[in-house]
Each structure stands twice: as C-alpha cells, then as structure tokens.
Design a protein around this nucleic acid. Structure first.
Length: 727
DNA sequence: GACCTGCTGCGGTTTG
C-alpha cells in the first residue's frame, strides 16, 4: 500500500488488511497525511458512502494509540445530528476499536443513563454525541467539562452542512468554543459533508478566526452516472377517462418501482399520505403484497424503523414515500431510484436525495422528477401560465448537473439562540458578568455580529419584569431569574429549535404517530394517516390523545409548515430558462409542452414591457428575478405603501395603484435610496424558540439578517426600472 | 409555498 498506510498505527493497519482492502481511497490517503502532518482544522468533502468517517478516524485513532501514557478524558469527540446516525457510526467504529481496547461511547437520549454515568466517571476513547446531549452536559455538569475534554485531540462534526447557518449550528459552535475556553486548549475541528455549497464559507464557519488555515480535502469524480427524466402532468382536465395527475403519477410509480427498493420524495407530509394511500390501495386491488410505506416525522418511531430496516435488509422490495426524513446519513443501503414529486426547495437537498441511489459500483443514479401544472384557460393565473413549478424543477436539475448547490446563509444575528446560550453559560457557571458573557459568546464564540450595546439590549429584554429570565445581584453578577431557573431545569431546554404541541394517535392500543393540536379533529371524522384510513372515535384533550379505528374513507390531516426559502441563483436560472431556446433532453413530451407554453406566455408579457408589465385594469407584474428573501422584502415595502401584493418565485403581482406611474414612482424613490419601513403591517416576526423574549426592535433587526434584506431594495428597484423604461 | 433534528434525573420495582 501507500506511504499513508505506513503512517497508521499497527492495529489499524491490521484491521484494514483484515477487511481485505487492496488500497486506501484517495480522500483517506489525503486525510491521513493532513491529520498526521499538523494540528490544523480539516474539511473532508465526499459523496455519501465515500469513506469519510474512516478517513478522519484512521489517523485520529492512530494518534491516540501513539500516546505514551493514557490520561483521563475523552480522546475524540464526535458530534452527529441524528441519534440513528450516532448509533450507526458507533457500531462501525466499535468494529475497528474492539480489538484495540479503545472505548466507543454513543451518547444521546436513547442511551441508558447508567452507560453515561459510567463514561462520565471514567472518560476515555471516542464519545459520539448530539449537540443537545452536549448542551445537557454543560447545563447539568458544567464543572466536569474541563476534566472530560482535557485530553481531547479532535472534534469531528458529521454532516457539517446541517450545522451551517442554522440555530442548531450556532449552538454547536458556541459549545465548541466553550469547551476550548474551559479547558484552555485549542482543539482541532474536522468537518465531514457531501453537500457544502461554498467551501470558503464552510471553512469560515468551522473556524471563524483562522478560516484560511483550514485544510480542504475534496473527493474528485467518482460520481455515479445519472439517468433522469422530468415528466409533466396536467390538472383540471374533466374529460372522461383522463386520470387526475395524482392518480396518473401513482400509476406510473406503481408500474416502474414495484419490485425494487426506492425513495419517493413527495414534498409535504400531506402529500406523503395521499400517495401512500393510493399506492397501498393499488397493491390491494391488484392483489400484490404491500411494499409502499409512508415515512415522515409524525409517524411512530417503530413504524419508521420497520421501513428503514426493510430498505436496509434488501430482502423484500420496499418503497418509502417520504419527506426529508430519509435524506440524511442514516444507513438504508442503496436504492434503485429516487422519485421527486413537485419541485424541491433546494438543490442541496435534491443532491442529498439523489445520493441515496447509484451507490454501488457500475449502478447509475436514477431520478424521476414529476411536475404538475394546471390546464390553462383565458382566466389562468400568471404563475400557472409561466409554469413556475416546472421551471423551478428544471432550473434545479440544471444546477445539480453543474455541481452547484446553495451556500450556507451566514451572518445572521440568531438572537433566539443567543438568549439560549446566555442562559446556558449562566446555568453552567452559576453566574456571570455581562462583559464575560459578551466575550465568551460574541467575541470568541459565534455571535460575532452582536456588539456590546446590542447584547445589552438582549440582556435587558431577558431581565424584563415580564420575562424574568435573569436578574442582577448587587455586585453586578448576572444570575438566573425565577422563570429562567424553571426553564433551564426542564429537559426541554437543551434543544434550540422550536417544536409544536401534538396529539398522539392511538389505534388498538398502539401508537400510530402524532398530529398537530391545531388540526381540528372530532369524533366521526375520517383521516388518512401512515397511508391507511381511520375514523376518529374519541378525542381526549387533557391527555392529548386521539383514539381511532380502521375505516373506509378519509383525508390526510393538515400538518402546516414554514414557507421555504429559494436561493437567488435558482430564480435567475428559471428566468434564463424562460428567455432561452434550448430544450433539455430529459423532458418527456408533456414537459416539453409545458416549457413551450411557459416561454410563449413569457414572450407575450415581455413584448409589452419587461420588468414591469401591465395586467388588466389595475394589476401590474414586477419581475424581481430574485429569490425568496429579496422578493419578499420588496413585497413588504410595497405593502407598507398601500399596494396589494401577491408573491411568486421571482415576481410580484401588484394591485391597488390606479396607474402604472404610481408604482414606478414608488420604485423610483426606492432606487434613489429611500429606506422604507418594512414592518408597518402586523407582520409575524417570531419564528424561533426564544423569539418571544425579544422586543419588537430586536426582532426586526434579527429578521433583517435572516429572512429579509432591506439593503438590496435600491439596486433591485433600479434594475426593474431600467428594464421597464421605454426604449 | 416545507421539511427535519433533540431531551435529565429520580423514584419505584425487580432480580441475583
């Protein structure tokens, strides 16, 4: 083997030989050199099943084995986003470490407390933990942190992309900084991922102070051949014998997927239920055994694990109709194909989904994309005439083929998580001064855009009479207030993300899953859940339990959700497509037709006036050609000035102004640099777990860094006016 | 116009 192999400890070499591997993979060779060479941080980027875990751990374990005298403390800290992933990885690492005698400790909510107590009393080896369990260690056992991590060589962060630019990612960054501060040691960080949109941003997020020092190890090539098709379907055809798009797509899935393992991403939990119900009934009527199953976050854990196991075993053909639950790293083996119903919300997630197929040598990855549009008549809506859903699906596939995916959105204030971490630091240390908190969290920690005056405002909000989360002692020390103590004491404190209240659905004494409390159900109503039909017998409000029995009819519950954020680049590509002539080869006949119709509609609009187009008496179209954040920001500005606005991908439908001049006059004031008030209407500004603590002024500043952008308005208005002005 | 993720300590009972 190579000289990299020689850098590994004997027991690791022996294990590799024992596996019968003839050679190490390229990223493994490069990772071994990087880990052994210096103590810098590292990002290892390779496709799923590309050998990233081994690439990081072979040399790290070798270093641990090279230590002369083992000291008390965990040698390697692994952070994973999912309990299931941690259990998978612990199994793989145990296999390597068993003979060596290095402990491997999975640590999350499903691990018994005796295992954790034992590991805490005698810390050694590799600990694999969730951000939340690490948080719990800080809050409940703050004094033990220096001892537990005094000898830790590295922190390995799996699925790094899930942690970038999110509340949970800020929490993790904060905890990593706090480990370094409390042990007084610099600990190298190693991030693993398959879908990082921008390596420079990923480096900056991994180590804000020394991004340029981060080694980048990217796998080259090795991508499976991709076979793809985009199929178009029309809704609203009342002719006899023409199936609805849902039925036609279910038929197509049944015909092509039955007999093999597949993932069908349906886009929402409600649509998962609809397709699962259709496909189950299809199996029944054709007298085939059941092989299509619904899989989403509200379905009971036992049922989800049953489906995951069926997929992994590969014994019985299994197709899961799912949401993003089956998108991340948990081990379900290789699937024959991936289906996507409706356009996804990001290219990154499409790529992650596609990575589930074509993992075996010589097997292609297969993607079937289904697009549903409405039939057009003279009153058809502009979003339908431009076939925006189909345009987005094509734009996303286009960008996927170019190997592009969304970069993380860094630079937001994340004030909700700042509130959380402030409580956490005070809880774990018993009390802290304001300047210490600012230094730990905002200077050394991740909340870098929060200056002392802003932090002071956050502290005052937390200490307000109403919130009473913190209070100041006579000597200036900040302590937990009455409500703060209560909050931190409960285990629900450890997660930084928001969750909603739910009812449990019970049939024959067995839990089927949960549904949101706001989906109004009463006895006698019929629902579809877990792909089957049920009738509600009893609603027990105090226990939050709903008893159901099998039934013949039903409709899926409404699960609710946040609107997704589409990146600027995707919308730009959609409009390039509308203006272009090329027809992608992977479109079926119906999809070609949709593209042709969209281009014709766009040309007719553009013929009048590009950018700002007249629609009937008092309705105008404003083409922003930008993603969700910029387009929503302009929509709020217009609403604040009395216009009525409907928002679509890259365009606004504006009414309420009698003449186009009013609209263009207003856009002119924006182009001149006038900054409008985006918050005149009673816009909802509370999205995250601790947003309720913040004042309106803080919420507005927060939202302007995460979901809105007022700085882009002037340029956007200029561009729109330029394309509008008569030539 | 969407999706996902996570959770301690203690008291009681049973078993060797």
């Amino acid at each position: 083997m190579t000289e990299a192999f020689d850098l590994l400890a004997r027991p690791i070499q022996k294990w590799i030989r024992g596996q019968g591997w003839s050679q190490l993979r390229d990223i493994q060779v490069r990772a071994i050199r990087a880990v052994t060479g210096d103590n810098n941080d590292i990002i290892i980027s390779a496709s799923t099943a590309g050998g990233k875990t081994e690439a990081a751990f072979f040399p790290l374990i070798s270093q641990v084995l090279g230590d002369e005298e083992p000291q008390s403390g965990f040698d390697i800290l692994y952070i994973g986003p999912l309990k299931a992933l941690i259990s998978d990885q612990a199994r793989r690492l145990s296999d390597i470490c068993e003979e060596i005698g290095l402990p491997v400790v999975p640590w999350h909510g499903d691990i018994s407390s005796s295992v954790k107590t034992k590991a805490r009393k005698n810390p050694a080896g590799i600990v694999l933990i969730t951000p939340e369990s690490l948080e719990a260690l800080f809050v409940r056992r703050g004094a033990e942190i220096p001892r537990l991590f005094s000898t830790t060589k590295a922190i390995v962060i799996d699925e790094l992309h899930t942690m970038l630019g999110t509340e949970r990612g800020m929490q993790l960054q904060s905890l990593m900084t706090r480990i370094e501060l409390s042990t007084g040691r610099h600990i190298r960080r190693i991030g693993l991922s398959a879908t990082l949109g921008d390596m420079e941003l990923a480096k900056a997020a991994l180590r804000p102070d020394a991004a340029s020092q981060v080694h980048l190890i990217e796998a080259k090539g090795g991508e499976a051949e991709l076979r793809l098709q985009l199929r178009g379907y029309l809704e609203g055809n009342t002719d006899e014998g023409v199936p609805s798009p849902t039925n036609a797509i279910a038929e197509h899935l049944f015909k092509h997927l039955r007999g093999s393992d597949n993932l069908i991403f349906a886009g929402s939990r409600q649509r998962v239920e609809i397709y699962a119900d259709r496909l189950r009934r299809k199996c029944e009527s054709e007298r085939f055994p059941q092989e299509f199953f619904a899989h989403h976050a509200n379905i009971a854990k036992e049922q989800r694990q049953f489906i995951e196991k069926r997929l992994k075993d590969g014994q019985l053909p299994t197709s899961a109709i799912c949401t993003s639950t089956l998108e991340l790293g948990i081990d379900i083996g290789d699937v024959s194909s991936v289906a996507q119903i409706g356009a996804p919300f990001s290219v990154a997630s499409l790529r992650q989904r596609l990575g589930r197929s074509g993992r075996r040598q010589g097997q292609p990855a297969v993607l079937r994309q289904y697009a549903i549009e409405s039939m057009l008549d003279s009153k058809a809506h502009i979003a339908d005439r431009l076939r925006l859903g189909t345009m987005r699906a094509i734009a996303m596939i286009d960008l996927l083929l170019e190997n592009w995916c969304e970069p993380p959105r860094l630079g937001a204030l994340h004030l909700s998580t700042l509130v959380h971490q402030t409580l956490s630091v005070i809880a774990s240390s018993g009390g802290a001064r304001a300047n210490t908190l600012h230094s730990v969290l905002c200077v050394k920690g991740p909340f870098r855009s929060v200056d002392p005056p802003l932090f002071g405002e956050v502290l005052r909000a937390m200490g307000s009479e109403e919130n009473a989360l913190i209070e100041q002692s006579s000597n200036g020390l900040l302590l937990l207030g009455e409500k703060g103590e209560k909050l931190v004491e409960h285990y629900s404190f450890f997660a930084v993300f928001q969750t909603s209240e739910e009812y449990r659905l019970i049939a024959d004494g067995k839990e089927l899953g949960t549904i949101p409390v706001d989906s109004l159900l009463a006895p006698g109503m019929m629902i579809i859940f877990s792909g089957r039909r049920w009738s509600v017998r009893e609603v027990r409000d105090t226990e939050r339990v709903i008893i159901v029995t099998a039934s013949a009819g039903g409709v899926p519950p409404i699960f609710g959700g946040d609107p997704g954020i589409i990146h600027d680049k995707v919308v730009e590509r959609m409009f390039d497509l509308l203006e272009g002539k090329a027809v992608p080869v992977y479109l079926d006949e119906a999809a070609r037709q949709l593209l042709a119709e969209a281009r014709l509609s766009y040309m007719q609009l553009a013929f009048e006036k590009r950018g700002l187009s007249h629609q009937g008496e008092s309705t105008h179209l404003v083409f922003t050609r930008r993603g969700t954040i910029a387009t929503n920001s302009l929509a709020l500005a217009l609403r604040g000035s009395g216009f009525k606005v409907e928002v679509h991908d890259g365009l606004l439908e504006v009414s309420g102004a009698d003449r186009a001049e009013n609209l263009s006059d207003y856009l002119q004031t924006l182009a001149n640099g006038d900054s409008p008030d985006l918050f005149v209407a009673d816009t909802n500004l509370r999205f995250e777990k601790f947003d309720h603590v913040l004042t309106d002024a803080l919420l507005q500043r927060n939202v302007l860094t995460s979901r809105l952008d007022s700085d882009c308005l002037a340029d956007m208005a200029k561009t729109i006016l330029d394309s509008f002005s008569p030539s």
